[in-house]
Simulated scan of single mutants.
Amino acid sequence: MRFHTRKWVKPEDLNPNGTLFGGQLLAWIDEEAALYTIIQLENSKIVTKYISEINFMASAKKGDIVEIGIEVTKFGKTSITMKCEARNKMTRETILTVDNIIMVNLGEDGKPVPHGKTEIEFVKDRLKD
């Protein structure tokens, strides 16, 4: 799994227990999945369709650095399915895992449209043309 994003846990990210609010982490993950999908499908019109069970295993506190990793598990006709792991860079613990995040490619009319992709592409490979 590639870890593309790091987030610094700030006071506004904390819950009443003084640890990272799960909702904030899920917002970071949703944003990361969207950005990853936009880059892979080369289309800024995408939406989150589904996020499976979320397994919280640990937390983070103010000042910790959280890394978010995304890995594509399947290319559908109009969708891309990924799994995710968030880990605490300071403690080296896995904070949570998500087995399935499904993002859907949309056309100009806002309806699902085939994306034509079948494998991961890296930007450096696209620049060779």
Rank of each mutant, 00 (worst) to 15 (best):
M1T: 06
I29C: 14
G69P: 00
M57A: 14
K74Y: 09
P112Q: 02
W28S: 08
S44T: 13
I54V: 01
I65C: 11
I46T: 12
D125S: 04
P114W: 11
T94A: 03
L25H: 01
T19S: 12
F75G: 00
K83P: 00
N17F: 15
K61P: 01
E121Y: 12
V9S: 04
K128E: 09
H115G: 00
N15C: 12
L127W: 14
V113M: 10
A34H: 08
R92A: 06
I68K: 05
R87P: 13
D13K: 08
P112W: 05
I101M: 03
K89L: 11
G69Q: 02
M57Y: 08
I46C: 13
L25G: 12
K10I: 03
I65W: 09
M82R: 05
I120Y: 14
L35S: 15
I80Q: 03
K61G: 02
P112A: 06
D109T: 07
T19I: 12
A34F: 13
R6T: 12
I102G: 00
K111V: 08
K62V: 10
R2N: 10
K77P: 06
K49C: 15
I65N: 12
V9K: 11
G22H: 10
D125W: 09
M90N: 15
R92L: 07
A86K: 06
L106E: 06
T97G: 08
N100S: 14
I54E: 00
H115F: 09
R87Y: 13
S59V: 07
D99T: 09
G69H: 01
T5C: 12
V72M: 09
L96D: 04
G18W: 03
T81L: 14
T118M: 07
E108P: 08
W8A: 11
I95V: 02
W28A: 02
A58Q: 14
Q40Y: 04
D109F: 04
K10S: 15
K77S: 05
T97Q: 05
L106I: 09
T19Q: 11
V123M: 14
R87S: 05
I38L: 07
F56K: 02
N105S: 05
T118G: 15
A33D: 04
E108A: 03
M103P: 00
L14M: 02
I46D: 03
V9G: 04
F21W: 09
F56R: 07
N15A: 03
N105Y: 00
R126C: 02
L127K: 11
K7I: 05
L35G: 15
N15P: 01
I29P: 01
A58I: 12
N105F: 10
K124L: 11
I29Y: 06
F75N: 03
V47S: 13
L41M: 03
G76M: 00
L35R: 15
N17E: 09
G22Y: 12
K77Y: 07
N100H: 15
A34G: 14
L106P: 04
P112R: 04
G76Q: 00
R87T: 10
F21H: 14
N100A: 08
P16S: 14
G18S: 00
V72P: 11
E53M: 00
N17W: 15
L26K: 08
K124W: 08
A34S: 13
F122R: 10
K10F: 10
G110S: 02
S59D: 01
N100I: 07
S59G: 05
K45R: 11
M1P: 05
V104K: 13
I70A: 13
T97R: 10
I29G: 00
K89G: 11
L41W: 13
V123C: 13
